[in-house]
Nucleic acid binder design. Structure first.
Lengths: 323, 323
DNA sequence: GACGCTTCCGGGAACGTTTGCAACCATCCT
DNA sequence: AGGATGGTTGCAAACGTTCCCGGAAGCGTC
């Protein structure tokens, strides 16, 4: 049914080898032959069969991206950036979503791993041992997860949080609530405690909760009774829940309470009031992760750790303490 | 490097054919042989090579999803639902994003089409001819695009819009602005004009604009001067822009102006005030589209058109006109 | 006891491509 | 002039799997 290399070869009056080379190593075939082949190929509508190619070569020319939940608005830009980067190098991106289920993750990884040359695992919940085994089988890059010897991209919130603390301090805040939404193994809590302590701000920690909108709704009521004038949420989604519930309770933001998110997703800019948040550049993150993966596939840069920074984006949800 | 069917065969003391059958047609091999093979396979960590399998069988066991922009919060749930559905049937989903670029779309489709058994094209911008050709080459399902003879999922806003008109009418509104963000070929304008006319509401149409947040910001200023008390936006994202800008202008929602979105994305619920919107069930849409694609691949249900309904979800961004 | 039927299994071709090897030709050098 | 060189090309094996065939064995039937 589909047109094969053989038909092109016949049409161009050459052997299949030459047609193959015309596509994979054009400089090894004489210009005029090349042109004849190209014409024949395009006339017949030939395109190489990826299955045959990868069977023969052991390469699939595609990259896997395993993320917890694509519905979290932080991830789509990651996917886009990775896709953009990968495409320029001839790679396809195979994305899969584990739905935050540990059991699904193993299954998902198994399914994807056979079809890609390497994969990026985001905040994986797999055991260190399993990840180690996996990384021996194929190139893997971890994001927000540390296993010795496996290349890794780490998001450093240090700068952003420090700026947030300064920002609040400058507005006269002294007491802040932190809504913890992390699993302990990649908690944002530690950096936050340190930074706030360094800036002499007292910190009340709530949670840990699931990092969801509803968490924010729930936590907002606790905020009002904690005698704090500022809230730092685990991510934008939670911050939005807080914003929403505070509005419902008649608490004005930022007059009565200041709110800060983390991630700088689409949600932050579009919120009312727009959300002051700590930006993690999804583009940079995805691009660096992709490059690191490609390097790992190519045998370069084993076990490297790349750090991505963050910074505060002040918007309208923070302001001076009132009275 | 990787373990093949041959090694399993040897370990189990059978031929490769039998191992193959053990995986693809277990009922054709004797129970005790089957078990021996399974043990050998799992001990060796064998999993069939998808490349070889699809080279031989012409099937890839994966489905393509081509969407304009995964950063539009309407799409992630689509992807999730499709993935969930597909996975249960042993399929993998290969998603790709065209970035709303027509030139990219062709290229993207070409890249994806070779690696899947069929694909779902969302609001494709390709010419009717090209889509026709494509559909002859491989199974295709169109969403929000009509080409005679190609299976299609159509989103019908009729019910939702009609409910929205009633809703506004009941609140005493008489004049509404519609912010048009569609390309003409799949405009939401027509149904809207008809429904509002039927409910005796006057309608001012703005646009067409790009369906972006900034569009909402811009349009909001026009709304105030249009002497209308209600706004219907092309989608939630645009509606949020409106909400945001109105707040900045000191216009209270819903006291002074009511706002309605379309899609019922995450954005709608998390907005402040929460957004009244017309829900299109992403889960249903994706599930039906996947099933239709699978049917088309299986040779059943050619050229069918499936319609998906919509309905109004009243929230806090609409209310009575303020006397 | 021969025959046919069913069940289970092995042999081997085929899927479309890449690539090592060798053949060929033209060119250049000595 | 003859051998070495280098650029082009063809041949054929190999990648891992599926599936068509045919053989072997077991079993029931007449």
């Amino acid at each position: 049914m589909a047109v094969t290399i053989r038909q092109v070869a016949q049409a161009a009056g050459v052997s299949v080898s030459t047609v193959s080379r015309a596509f994979t190593a054009p400089d090894q075939v004489q210009p005029q032959t090349l042109q004849r082949i190209r014409e024949a190929a395009s006339k017949l509508g030939y395109a190489p069969n990826p299955a045959a190619r990868s069977l023969r070569g052991g390469k699939t020319e595609s990259l896997g991206l395993i993320i917890p939940d694509i519905a979290n608005p932080f991830f789509p830009p990651i996917f886009k950036a990775m896709q953009a980067r990968a495409r320029r190098l001839g790679y396809t991106v195979l994305a899969a979503d584990t739905d935050e289920r540990e059991s699904d993750e193993l299954e998902t990884i198994a399914a994807v791993s056979k079809r890609v040359d390497g994969m990026i695992l985001w905040a994986s919940t797999l055991s260190e041992d399993r990840l180690g085994e996996l990384a021996e089988t194929m190139p893997v890059v971890l994001v927000n997860r540390h296993v010795p010897g496996i290349p890794e991209i780490r998001v450093s919130l240090t700068a952003g949080i420090s700026q947030a603390a300064e920002h609040l301090k400058a507005y006269g805040h002294t007491r802040c609530v932190f809504i913890n939404g992390s699993r302990p193994e990649h908690s944002r809590g530690k950096s936050i405690r340190e930074a706030f302590e360094a800036h002499d701000l007292s910190l009340v920690e709530l949670g840990p909760y699931e990092p969801r909108f509803e968490t924010g709704l729930h936590a907002a009521t606790l905020v009002t009774s904690a005698d704090a004038t500022a809230v730092l949420a685990h991510n934008d989604l939670v911050a939005l829940g807080v914003l929403h519930q505070l509005a419902k309770l008649g608490v004005d933001v930022p007059r009565d309470v200041s709110v800060i998110g983390i991630d700088d997703t689409l949600l932050a800019e579009t919120a009312t009031p727009s959300l002051t948040t700590i930006r993690i550049s999804a583009e940079e993150l995805a691009t660096r992760a992709t490059d690191l993966l490609l390097d790992t596939i190519g045998g370069r840069g084993g076990g490297r750790v790349v750090e991505i920074g963050s910074r505060l984006i002040p918007r309208s949800s923070t302001g001076p303490v009132h009275g």
